[in-house]
Write a protein that binds this DNA or RNA. Sequence first.
RNA 1: GGGAGCGUGCCGGAAUUGGUAGACGGACUCGACUCAAAAUCGAGCGCCUUCGGGCAUGUGGGUUCAAGUCCCACCGCUCCUACCA
Length: 885
Amino acid sequence: MSESSRYQPQAIETGWQRAWRENGLHDTPELKPGDEAFYALSMFPYPSGNLHMGHVRNYVITDVVARVQRLRGNKVLHPMGWDAFGLPAENAAIERGVDPGGWTDQNIASMREQLNQLGLSIDWDREVATCHADYYRWTQWLFLQFLDSGLAYQKDATVNWDPIDQTVLANEQVDSEGRSWRSGALVEKRKLRQWFLKITDYAQQLLDDLNQLEGWPERVRTMQANWIGRSTGAELQFTVVDADGNDTAERITVFTTRPDTIFGASYVVLAPEHPLVAELTTAEHEIEVEAFCDLVSRQSEQERTAEDKPKRGVAIGAQVRNPANGELIPIWIADYVLAEYGTGAVMGVPAHDQRDFLFARQYELPVQQVIIPEDSDEHAFEGGAWTEGGVLIHSGRFDGLPNGEAKLAITAAAAAEGWGQEKVQFRLRDWLISRQRYWGCPIPVIHCDSCGVVPVPAEQLPVELPRDVAFSGKGGSPLAQLESWVNVSCPCCGKPAKRETDTMDTFMCSSWYFLRYSDAKNSQLPFSKEAVDSWLPVDQYVGGIEHAILHLLYSRFFTKVLRDRGLLSFDEPFTRLLTQGMVQGITYKNPLTGKYIAPGDVADPTDPRDPVSGEVLETFFEKMSKSKYNGVDPAVVIDKYGADTARMFILFKAPPEKDLEWDDADVEGQFRFLQRLWRLVDSACERGLSLAAGAGNADAVAQALAEASASGGLKPDEQELRRAVHTAITEISDDLDGDYQFNTAVSELMKLSNAMGSHLEASGEVFACEALRTLLILLAPFAPHLSEELWLKLGGRNSGDALAGSSIHAQRWPVADASALVRDTVPLVIQIKGKVRGNLEVPADADKATLEKLALESDIAAKWLEGKPPSRVIVVPGKLVNLVP
RNA sequence: GGGAGCGUGCCGGAAUUGGUAGACGGACUCGACUCAAAAUCGAGCGCCUUCGGGCAUGUGGGUUCAAGUCCCACCGCUCCUACCA
């Protein structure tokens, strides 16, 4: 074999990448009425500077989807961008004194280069970066839309405050002991005035519309539904009584999903932060209550919510009247009651709620059972609360009612008597979007002493991030210290005023980027309604499961708000969602020291040992990470095997939503497959086969078939070859239709290649060309460079032709010829009493009676039935005959 | 505690939705080629077997002519969520 005909991906891939780009093969076509549009989207990355295997898997999957759609003749939008605001850039600024913007732009450039090496068919003309003013200008504009709709507001909220660095920390920056990741200081809770978006206004819609999302994984829908957390119950009011037991005007409202248990309420508990605590605490309890509130306020979120922790609380001295039975019961505060959920107050029903039960036992509060299980007069709980259904007792006029009915009856009574009402409660809370950080999108408002909060007028957008900023990592947001930036005149009254110095949560920036791609260059609006409505919703969205809740929920929320403002006309942004599994690397760990060993330091993988101590190592697969030395650098793989091998391996090794175990031996195997394809085409060329002038296309095949049937039919090899070709078309088309099964699609390519190895040589030119042509087109979405190269080699295009029309990627997806799959005879399985006993070759068109007859006459039947007629015969045409003796 | 999902050879994984379990690939074994190795090509590859066959899809039951697939119970693993009243 000559040197020039070896498969060397390094020699062909970059050339094709450049040629595709220069010839605009991946440009987004203009949409005309009646066009089938397809929007294939990957979740855009944070530009860390390094592409990792998780990215590769994500983008390759989306790229295959996009390429298949183009081959099917659809107009495709396949863009890419950068989720470019966020902490890493600011940290680089603090630690190394670099400019966050410049650092980010460098990373973007280097990652774009790495992405291009994968041969992705991305339209870079529509690239967006959330940190560029021409993008965040519109993030600000959209914020003002929310403000105008009354969906953005400020309120005091508790934040994590680092007292040493004088700065706000995200939850992730506080370790499990409540210390700052940077300064190590014990983090305090502080109240700061923060911006919120009223996502709770859309809770019901966000929940209801999950039903529309049939193209989403069930578990993502479930996770969102749980996150929104709708529960139906009642708000009930307990009247506060004075020291003499007389009713006051004060009421405590609790939320409960179990109004049926109200007769069992033996106390009421407020969250320590509840506004009534200070007011209602009696003098003799003041010291204790204050100490308790102080203790709780210093606990981290994690400590506070650890479930195995004993529940703690104190009584505040005051009492309330149970509205159902008039009993006086005490008010407590406790750490297990959350201020932010419901009313921040609950009724304690120890007999029928496990938390109340534990609390009551700890503080010796009375336990009153009010529900007994049906068909049991036993005392139904020992050691635990009875939380199941049953019949009411000790509940006055409601005694004997099943508790389901009692819920309704008691809620109705409460409403009629003025001490309560039905209530739907959501777990979802409003979205806190303020960040006291520099590297984010500035919130475009101005605070004026006279006019209050004044939005920056739209024509003054963007509020640009100043670039001349000092980063110390201390003393709050760098923006707040930049007086020249902070001090402005009020757009309303012209008096001196101050800019908002908070920036937005980066999730704000990523909640609408997929809309911007439809009209990325628009300088008048974030996007035109026409453009956004013609491309969206996204037909296929691909990304990691880690975004199952926040990013996807926020994006859905944005979409609904913008729809309600008339900016777009669809309800949901993403029609189909694929959450790809993570990429795992082989990981070695010394079980004695707990240290991870790099695979490069393991001499013999079949007997992995610690290079220092000789200890036998644990071997397993785990998500790639630097600290475990189990990462595989995509650049190294591309260098060695080429992008096509990397793409094929990733797609073949595991179904897309499952975790993928990176295995060098398998990569090698994948490379061998591509080499075989190269040789297959090579020997076809040596035979003189060429795809020029449409050789092997549908017309040529139809003519050859007609000629063949006139002269005695196809040769057996040709029949086998055609069957393999058209089986592959059928199977691969099916695998790529909706539920993406790239792994089996690749295996079908292998089967086709195997069949061609056996039958191509003995087949006539037309059918050989049909097979080659089909194989290359089916391969094109998976291995775009190799298929393009082989296409050229085989004369599928002349090197002088314009690439835009003659590229393999401009061809049409093949259509299966059902007649190629037809056989004269088919194997019929003979079962005796359900067990397979043999095969019988039978005419494909035989009817049931014939099949039964053939089966009964067969040697198999003779042997197993021993001459007796079967008691029962089941015939499944085309499949089997089951004879039951 | 709640929710979702999964369990198939040595390994990754297939299985037309109830119809020949183990496709395709990796690893491994043998053979051809080679001075040799790699590459390549060919063969084998669930377990047991007295070579008739028997047993096999986490375990135990059930439905069915027929179960990896449906139903019930149990065991194990993974992920998410977590005091939401």
